[in-house]
Amino acid sequence: MSILLFRVFVPAALLAASAPVSAQSFEDLDALLERTADEEQGIATAREQVDRGELLEALATLERVLTIFPKSAEARFNHAMLLCWIDDPQGGLVEFERLDEDDYEPGALEQARATCSTATQDEEE
């Protein structure tokens, strides 16, 4: 399980942030909703949104996933990390504290908590 998925893709998002894609029709919405009805596809969609710099939309996508799959360890982790990346480290850390170490690779949560409050500055440099 690639729980650190977004950490890998955020630098790409910084480069591609100038090309947002907006829905303009219900067909666009329906297509997006179809992709987020499934846990794996939903997380992949959020990852694509991060690639485009659409962090708030990625958060919303993960919240759709978590509504249907609330125990999704990957969605939980990445949701918390995205909060850190929109500069809400308090929100991210509150969510990280609820996660179970057993659901993740050893040290992953500890590392995430340690980097949360400084993630934005690190990526910007």
């Binding site: 955020v10 659409e54 962090l55 929109i86 809400d88 934005t120």
Partner: peptide, 14 residues
């Protein structure tokens, strides 16, 4: 308010 803050990635408007 949850964000984005001034330090958000991707150049999001605070």
């Amino acid at each position: 308010l949850r964000g984005p803050g001034p330090g958000a990635l991707s150049g999001l408007t605070p």
